[in-house]
Design a protein around this nucleic acid. Structure first.
Length: 269
DNA sequence: CGCCAGGACGCCC
DNA sequence: GGGCGTCATGGC
C-alpha cells in the first residue's frame, strides 16, 4: 500500500483491494454504495469515525476528507493495509480451487471490524439473507441517530422493546448478548486474546451464538484469521472441492481463504 | 405462492 | 452425540 496526501484527501494505491468485493461481500453490513463520478464510492463508519471512499480505477482509491493522522491511526488498520495479500494469495494458489477463487475476486480483504458490532450483526445474520440483515441493522442504527449503538444503549432492551427491528426470534438473542457484555459476564476484549477454543466456548455462552456466529465474531470482529465460519455456502464448497478436508497449509489463514471461497461459490452460476 | 436465507435451540432417541 | 422440527421475517 502506498499513499499520498492531496489537499483534504488521501490518495491510496493498493493492488489487492476492490471496494465492491471487500465492502459488499457479507463481512460488513453497514457500507452504502453512493452515486459516484468514479468507479464506485462507499460511505460507512468504523466505530464513531465516518468515511467516504472512492475507487478511481483498479487499485487506486481516494479517502475523502481524511487527515493523514486519521488515515494512519484508523483506516490502515481497518482495511488491514499492513498485511500483504499478494503473499497470501501466492500461498493459497497451491490449491486449485483457492487459486480460482482468488483469481475471481482477488480484491477481497479481511476488514478489522469492531467485535461488539460484529457480535450483534452476526447474531442477526443467522438463518437470514444479506439484504434483510442490512435492513435490520439499518433500523437498529436509525434508532440511535445513525450510529451503531454501544453496549450501554442496548443493555436495557428486551425482545419486546426491540420489536421495531422486526428481527424475529433473534431479538431475544440480541438482548442476551447486550446484557452479558454490559454485566461483564462476556468480556469481548479478553476473548479476543484467548486460545481459540476457549474463545469459542466463551462466545457460545451467549444465547443465539452457535458455532457459525462464534466463528464470524472471531474472524471479522477479532481478526482471528484461523477462524473458519461454515455456512450453507461453505458447506457446498467443502463437499464439492474438499471431501478430504481443508488443506493444512492454509490453516492459519483459513478465514481469509474462506472469504475468497465464499464469494467465488456464491457467484458461480 | 413456495423456497430459501452467512443457524441455533430444544427435544428426542 | 447426532437428527429433526421449530423459530420470524421477508427477499426472490
Amino acid at each position: 500500500m502506498d499513499y499520498s496526501v492531496k489537499g483534504r484527501d488521501i490518495y491510496v494505491s493498493e493492488p489487492d483491494l476492490d471496494l465492491d468485493e471487500t465492502l459488499d461481500c457479507g463481512q460488513a453490513f453497514r457500507w452504502k454504495k453512493t452515486d459516484s463520478n468514479y468507479d464506485c464510492t462507499y460511505e460507512g463508519n468504523f466505530l464513531n469515525e465516518h468515511l467516504r471512499v472512492s475507487q478511481i480505477k483498479k487499485g487506486e482509491f481516494i479517502f475523502h476528507d481524511t487527515s493523514e493522522n486519521d488515515f494512519i491511526s484508523k483506516w490502515i488498520n481497518y482495511f488491514d493495509f499492513e498485511t500483504d495479500y499478494t503473499e497470501l494469495k501466492k500461498l493459497f494458489s497451491e490449491d486449485g480451487t483457492l487459486s480460482k477463487a482468488c483469481a475471481f475476486a482477488g480484491g477481497i480483504r479481511l476488514l478489522r471490524q469492531d467485535s461488539w458490532e460484529c457480535l450483534i450483526s452476526f447474531i442477526i445474520s443467522q438463518n437470514n439473507n444479506i439484504p434483510r440483515i442490512k435492513g435490520i441493522i439499518d433500523r437498529l442504527c436509525g434508532h440511535y441517530g445513525g450510529s451503531f449503538p454501544d453496549v450501554n444503549q442496548l443493555s436495557g432492551e428486551d425482545a419486546d422493546s426491540l420489536g421495531y427491528l422486526r428481527s424475529g426470534f433473534r431479538a431475544k438473542y440480541i438482548a442476551d448478548a447486550a446484557s452479558r457484555v454490559s454485566r461483564g459476564e462476556t468480556d469481548l476484549s479478553a476473548i479476543a486474546e484467548m486460545p481459540i477454543d476457549q474463545a469459542r466456548t466463551e462466545l457460545k455462552k451467549i444465547l443465539g451464538v452457535g458455532p457459525k456466529v462464534a466463528e464470524c465474531v472471531l474472524l471479522f470482529g477479532m481478526h482471528r484469521t484461523e477462524a473458519f465460519p461454515v455456512d450453507v455456502w461453505i458447506k457446498r464448497v467443502l463437499a464439492e472441492y474438499y471431501p478430504d478436508g481443508f488443506p493444512e497449509f492454509a490453516r492459519e489463514n483459513a478465514g481469509i481463504a474462506q472469504q475468497y471461497l465464499f464469494h467465488y461459490i456464491r457467484n458461480l452460476g
